[in-house]
Amino acid sequence: MWTRGKKTGFLVSMLMVGGALSYLALGNFGENLVYFFTPSEVKAFTPEYYQKKIRVGGMVVKGSVKSHPDPVGLSFELTDGAATIPINFEGIPPDLFKEGQGAVVEGYWAANHQFHSNLIMAKHSEDYMPMELKRAGVELPKKDFMKSLVE
């Protein structure tokens, strides 16, 4: 059934694919079931989690965004409805970053209970409509991001 070369090729390639799959399944994927922490979870962090690179996701609190010029950046608050944490961000935020919208922030939680970050990823919702409808106040059904965080 097998020629020698094919058998080796087969085994090597199966090892590669199998290795990649199990790496994803055991390491990465298990970790990514918790892709980001919520502000409540971050607030409950014990000191050994301080200064560790993590991701936090939540809603950008309306009216909390303040920009500062030097170094260019923002400070704002992220909430999951139950808890709110302050974020210090250095850099230019992405285009879709906005108050009242979801954001996932990468950085670390410091001992002074501030989250320091230089990467914001904007999480957009699954509703799509033209500007005219939005201005007319239309709301399309969508998953409540805040509710999904507290659960």
Partner: peptide
């Protein structure tokens, strides 16, 4: 999340 789900269609 899915734009087509039990919640309805989320695209105008």
């Amino acid at each position: 999340p899915q734009s087509f789900s039990l919640r309805g269609v989320s695209i105008s």
